[in-house]
Design a protein around this nucleic acid. Structure first.
Length: 574
RNA sequence: GAUUCCGUAGCUCAGCUGGUAGAGCAUAACACUUUUAAUGUUAGGGUCCUGGGUUCGAACCCCAGCGGGAUCACCA
């Protein structure tokens, strides 16, 4: 049972009327299509002879009815096409029902129709389809928001409320074409990335999403449970440790594009599930990886945007390499003037205090440096910049730096003040790796709930030997935000996570009758805006009795008033 | 999680110092054979987010809740 507004009731009536006329509003059929809106707009002028027998389908989006002729627009998956419908063309005989009744009255905006006819150009110069035959393919019984645009592209009555747009993305996609193009771009980003990797001979793989040990990143996982095994499982926060097992297994390069899940806050840059790409290539180090990323991003930008430059907010970002490289200590020194490279934990705490950065006792040396960096440096890194050589404490899976003690071979790529990629020369010494995990356990004991857990099977794999390997992770959603110039992650996710929609359970006629209300009085109850049983049961008996009698009179219903006792019984459920 | 703003017709929004709600588009009816934000005339359409409170009287003031946006905190 749902409450219907005027327009929804009207459309349900239209559906019934169509059935009465013997027209199935939801026919089971394939409709032949030999042209698209995009194709027609692009090629009609040059190949007019090819557009005389068009069969096309789409959603009816506007109608301009002028007596016995009408203009309308249909929207297919590529765009819109104006159609011209003339009564005597589609109703050559005496019976004009198909035009006067079906087309003009029973069709509505949002309906899918199939059309046959020929393309022509109107007096006002619009390429249009002169319709000779139309078929209803699917009736829409919920009114779409109407977004109008004039010739300059100005939008009138836009469908703009983010809540409605995200909750009903299907509507957003129908009426806001630029939303559709954002997601087309997203798809192209992923496919061109995949093409780049495939062209290099690296293998696309899939690894477990349900993991017994959550590792590979510092984050809080989602818990779940496997019934048959009766064990707890985690939704993966990363797939790094599995991909490295595959390098141990002998693949030269493996990559995975997939969802990760982190049980943390949600905002304009975080969704509980997000898409990441991780790739591991054997016999390489992080220096090689920096060059690879420059080539990869340059190529993706060119193939998606047609240029290596992207407009992002106020800035023009240049994705062609080489990118600036700064070590983490250099970066901190550059933007704070402080050399933190020689400080111990106590010294770092003093620096944080001096800079006004909040810290707590669970933070180790690595985390403190990360805090300073995040607070003072990140925002300045607009053009693609590699930050390299991180403190060992914050990076338990990277190899120790070849010549800088206390650091690891790691870089993160920052663009527009945000981290979009993270890479290491991977740690492949199993003894060192075990010690690093031990350190993580100590952090966990201090209260760091994001510290990594020991993964014995991963260590066993490393003990068999892993070749020198470089690994990279890229946040696909954030990359897409950059390349589509969107400032929120919700704009590049079809269905961002939202709080549940509150749905009231609207009582049916049967529900009300079961509560003792005579069928004839149910319209009165609804007219009083009592739509749920909860509402009914919390009414004041005297007031409801008065209201019902009053409203019955007003609605001129030919039914006896209830007694006050009757009303009390409805409310008390007797 | 904190702060702050917002929630009125299917959609986008008005609504003054508190006096039972308006517009445009959409919908319905009529007119109109090349329109294009089609036009003209007319009509219908509301749980003013929910629940309390103040008041003779609340869309408006107060309190609580729900949902959303923005900023901040945490993180990717």
């Amino acid at each position: 049972m749902q409450l219907l507004n005027e327009q929804e009731i009207e459309r349900r009536k239209d559906r019934e009327a169509l059935l009465q006329l013997g027209i199935d509003p939801y026919p089971a059929l394939s409709y032949p299509i030999n042209a698209t809106s995009a194709d027609i707009h692009k090629n009609y002028e040059n190949r007019k002879n090819d557009y005389k027998n068009i069969s096309i389908a789409g959603r009816l989006m506007t109608r301009r009815i002028m007596g016995s002729a009408s203009f309308a627009e249909i929207q297919d998956s590529y765009g819109r096409l104006q159609i011209y419908v003339r009564r005597d063309d589609i109703c050559p005989d005496e019976d004009k029902t198909l035009y006067n009744t079906v087309f003009k009255k029973l069709l509505g905006i949002g309906d899918f129709i199939g059309l046959k006819g020929f393309i022509f150009t109107t007096q006002t110069g619009e390429i249009s389809l002169h319709v000779q035959e139309f078929t209803l393919l699917s009736k829409s019984i919920k009114p779409l928001p109407i977004v109008k645009r004039d010739d300059e592209g100005n939008v009138y009555d836009g469908f703009t409320d983010p809540e409605l747009r995200y909750r009903q993305r299907y509507v957003d996609l129908i009426v806001n074409p630029e939303v559709k193009s954002t997601f087309v771009t997203r798809s192209k980003v992923i496919s061109s990335m995949r093409r780049y990797f495939d062209d290099h001979g690296w293998l696309e793989v899939e690894t477990p999403i349900l993991q017994q040990v959550h590792g590979g990143a510092a984050a809080k996982p989602f818990d779940t449970h496997h019934n048959a095994l009766d064990i707890p499982l985690f939704l993966r926060i990363a797939n790094e440790l599995y991909l490295k097992r595959l390098i141990v297994g002998g693949f030269e390069g493996v990559y995975e594009i997939g969802k990760m899940f982190r049980n943390e806050g949600m905002d304009r840059t975080h969704n509980p599930e997000f898409t990441s790409m991780e790739i591991y290539v054997a016999y390489k180090d992080y220096v090689w990886m920096m060059e690879m990323v420059e080539e990869l991003l340059g190529q993706i930008a060119s193939s998606v945007l047609g240029s290596t430059q992207a407009k992002v907010g106020e800035h023009i970002i240049e994705f062609a390499g080489p990118y600036k490289r700064l070590s983490m200590f250099e970066a901190i020194q550059e933007y704070t003037g402080i050399d933190v490279s020689t400080l111990d934990e106590a010294g770092l705490r003093k620096v944080c205090a001096a800079l006004g950065i909040d810290v707590d006792d669970s933070m180790g040396k690595g985390k403190l440096i990360d805090e300073i960096f995040g607070e003072k440096v990140e925002d300045h890194l607009i053009q693609p910049t590699y930050i390299t050589d991180y403190p060992i404490e914050m990076t338990p899976l990277a190899k120790k730096h070849r010549d800088k003690p206390g650091l690891v071979e790691r870089f993160e790529l920052f663009v527009n003040g945000k981290e979009i990629a993270n890479a290491y020369t991977e740690l492949n010494d199993p003894i060192d790796q075990r010690e690093r995990f031990e350190e993580q356990l100590k952090l966990a004991a201090r209260g760091d709930d994001e510290a990594m857990a020991m993964d014995e099977d991963f260590l066993r794999a490393l003990e068999y030997g892993m070749p020198p390997t470089s690994g990279l992770g890229i946040g696909i959603d954030r990359l897409c935000m950059l390349l589509t110039d969107k400032s929120t992650i919700q704009e590049v996710l079809f269905f961002p996570q939202m709080k549940p929609e509150k749905r009231v359970k609207v009582a049916t006629d049967e529900d009300f009758m079961e509560a003792g209300i005579p069928a004839a009085l149910i319209p009165v109850i609804r007219e009083l805006n009592i739509h749920t049983l909860d509402q009914l049961h919390t009414q004041n008996p005297s007031k409801l009795f008065n209201d019902v009698c009053g409203k019955r009179k007003k609605l001129k219903l030919n039914v006896a008033n209830p007694s006050k006792e009757d009303v009390e019984n409805w409310i008390n459920g007797n």
